[in-house]
């Protein structure tokens, strides 16, 4: 189980990295934390011609307070996010999700940009970005563009990132006044989710003004449960029937089955995750 041959570049400047990706014409892959890419290369499932190691690009690191938003460099590692007071204070939903990601040694290397780029349907952070209406910042030789998380995750390991683009940062609006809930159902500690829910809910008085509900581990990608969101909009907190309607509305989702859980099982667990996330952070 050894990786096939590849070329390796560690550019010191962003320009070089973008040139390398453009020159690779799809056969060059960015190497971020490597915690998913390396296993795929060891299995020879991924066989890039060239790896463009982003480690030397200092501008991709770090967490910045940008007023209404928090900007997270794509190469920021999970462990750095977990240690960040800014994340804990301003992006509590992300802070809540981080300990659920894999194991310490993986979190010491794995990066948020790498996870978003891979778009594993069972990964936590794509759902968190959906619930928080985050933005993916992409750059190529042609310039920079900002893609809403809702437009970024397109399908099974498929995103809006072009092969010559790098994710340079994630932008997340500060959580001002939102309630958050998160629940993940996995077989073992650190396993990918059988189902999970990330919620960001605006409440005024006892009334739900807006609920953003993102599910992960249940379909081909992390996705918003729009029917459930509609069912909860305007509901009074503590009104169990609204939550029941929201869970029933999950039926609209195209649930995916695999060896770990069938589609009907995932449909059921998505409802459980939604209820538990709601109970944890909203109700």
């Amino acid at each position: 189980m050894k990786a096939a041959e590849f070329g390796y570049l560690r550019p010191g400047r962003m320009e070089e990295a973008l040139q390398a990706l453009a020159a690779g014409e799809g056969a060059a892959m960015p190497l971020a934390g490597g915690q998913s890419l390396m296993p795929m290369m060891n299995f020879r499932v991924a066989m890039p011609e060239t790896l463009v190691d982003l480690a030397a690009l200092a501008e991709l690191r770090g967490i910045h307070d940008a007023g209404e938003r928090v900007v997270i460099g794509a190469m920021t590692r999970w462990s750095e996010l977990m240690a960040s007071g800014l994340i804990a204070a301003e992006v509590p939903l992300l802070a809540r999700a981080l300990p659920e990601i894999a194991h310490p040694a993986i979190r010491n290397r794995g990066t948020i940009g790498g996870s978003v780029a891979l778009a594993d349907p069972a990964a936590e952070v794509p759902a968190v970005l959906l619930a928080l209406a985050g933005v993916v910042v992409l750059r190529s030789l042609a310039g920079e563009r900002r893609v809403a998380a809702g437009d970024f995750f397109l399908g099974h390991y498929e995103t809006a990132r072009a092969a010559d683009e790098l994710i340079v940062a994630l932008e997340v609006p500060k959580a001002r006044g939102l309630r958050h809930g998160f629940h993940e159902i996995g077989r073992r500690h650190g396993d990918f989710a059988l189902a999970g829910a990330a919620l960001a809910v605006a409440v005024e008085g006892a009334r739900v003004m807006e609920a953003r509900i993102a599910l992960f581990g249940v379909a081909d990608r992390a996705l918003r449960a729009t029917g459930a969101e509609a069912a909860l909009r305007g509901a009074v907190l503590g009104d169990g029937t609204a939550l029941d309607r929201a869970v029933a509305a999950l039926a609209e989702i195209d649930f995916a089955g695999d060896i770990h859980a069938s589609a009907p099982m995932r449909r059921h667990l998505a409802g459980v995750a939604l209820r538990r996330a709601w109970a944890e952070g909203v109700a």
């Binding site: 500690h189 650190g190 990918f192 060896i259």
Partner: peptide, 28 residues
């Protein structure tokens, strides 16, 4: 509770990684 080598109807083993074949870990 956890471990099973899963085959499809064609005799293909479906879980050939440590992430897919569930060995008991400390936490559980």
């Amino acid at each position: 509770l956890y471990e099973e080598c899963l085959y499809d109807d064609q005799g293909q083993l479906l879980n050939t990684t440590m992430a897919d074949y569930l060995v008991p870990m400390a936490a559980e």
